[in-house]
Design a protein around this nucleic acid. Structure first.
Length: 278
DNA sequence: GTACAGGCAGTAT
DNA sequence: ATACTGCCTGTA
């Protein structure tokens, strides 16, 4: 197994429902609680779930060599050893990033935490109470007003739309995981509340699309300052939908099938440089 | 009081 | 295609 560092990965802003108790980290993964200390554990029992969550099945040597073709990313691989992509539960990931639009990480954590406390099922682990992430079926039954009371604000409408899409079968995460990147992305974009950025986050973090390259304001800044030679687009923090498409195409073409891994390192670096600790 | 935070949809040109 | 606007909510 290659060296990897769960703690830096957990703290890199890709997951929201992990917390530290003592020297152990506990995370909500759909209907399970995952514990990481010296070893991994799952409640209820789920054999080798760490292989899934920390992507231990990835050939990191191959990935590293592929994205190291870019000198900037090559340096970041050395600067942040052990930083890895994590694989999330698809439904939880969808709802998490719908809630993540136009807000900050502490707020996202608050919204999701409240959702789990109110609508999740209690699971005890080491004497601590944890709550699972509510399913689409459960969220679909909750009124928009109740969701707003969890602090979601106008995102409540989008959560309802996503839940309804899943319950009706119009949106099928198993199909999305099997589908090609562009097909899966188009399906996601059809749902109210899901745009380019959220779609790419869900594709990368939970639907096996390692070529997905989410472009948020931080990545846009990096692309503007370090990669203008690659796209030649004049841009500010905010980019239009069309600019997003053009950038996305060029960046995926340049970084290759593991572009999402490169994105994760660039994103982490930008946040570090800005002194963000969440 | 105002500005801002890891977007998105709706409308007008 | 692009420009512009409003939107929940908590924090500085």
């Amino acid at each position: 197994m290659q060296h990897f560092n769960p703690e830096i990965s957990i703290n890199s802003g890709q997951v929201f429902l992990w917390e530290k108790h003592g020297d152990a980290w506990y995370g909500i993964h759909g209907q399970h609680v995952v514990k990481f200390s010296k070893t991994f554990q799952c409640f209820p029992e789920f054999k080798n779930i760490e292989n899934t969550i920390f992507r231990l099945d990835d050939d990191f040597a191959a990935i590293s060599s592929e994205i190291s073709k870019d000198p900037f990313v090559s340096g970041l691989l050395k600067s942040y050893p052990g930083l890895r992509l994590m694989r999330q539960d698809p439904e939880q990931c969808l709802f998490s990033f719908v809630c993540a639009s136009n807000t900050n990480i502490p707020m996202i954590r608050r919204m999701l935490y409240t959702l789990t406390r109110k609508f999740g099922k209690k699971i005890q682990a080491d004497g601590i109470d944890f709550f699972t992430f509510p399913t689409a079926f459960e969220l679909n039954k909750i009124s928009e007003a109740e969701l707003r009371q969890c602090g979601l604000g106008y995102r409540a409408k989008a959560v309802k739309a996503v839940a309804a899409s899943i319950v009706s079968g119009r949106l099928d995460t198993d199909y999305l995981a099997r589908a090609k990147y562009k097909d899966a992305k188009n399906e996601l974009l059809n749902v109210y509340g899901i745009g380019n950025k959220i779609a790419d986050c869900v594709l990368l973090f939970s639907l096996e699309k390692t070529e997905a390259f989410p472009i948020d304001v931080w990545i846009a800044r990096a692309l503007a300052s370090n990669y203008s030679w690659l796209h030649g687009i004049k841009m500010s923090d905010k980019i239009t939908a069309h600019q997003y498409d053009v950038l996305s195409e060029k960046v995926r073409d340049y970084f290759g099938k593991y572009a999402g891994y490169a994105q994760q390192y660039i994103y982490y670096h930008m946040r570090q440089e800005a002194g963000k600790k969440w």
